[in-house]
Amino acid sequence: MATIEERVKAVTARILKLDPGQIKAEHSFTVDLGAESVQSIELVAMFEEEFGIEMDEDAALSVETVDKAVEFIAEVCRQQGVDVN
């Protein structure tokens, strides 16, 4: 089963139309991957769909990098009882 990081990268690649292999954990969604504000909204929506979770918009949209997104999503999954292992 894919890890949270792999799934985050896959979603990010689909929304931002990138090759998943280009996406690194330390990459910033905006500065390095070129996400515009509208795409940030799409990313949050698609992470929620991918993991079956509900995220607080303000908190989710303040996450800047891929690795922080992985941490954030893992924590939300834990809080909401979603098994991702």
């Binding site: 909204i41 929506a45 918009e57 303000d58």
Partner: peptide, 16 residues
């Protein structure tokens, strides 16, 4: 609602 790219989204939320 935040109506973005032709669909209703949660957008940046009610705080914004």
């Amino acid at each position: 609602a935040w109506f973005v790219e032709g669909i209703v989204t949660k957008g940046f939320g009610k705080g914004k």
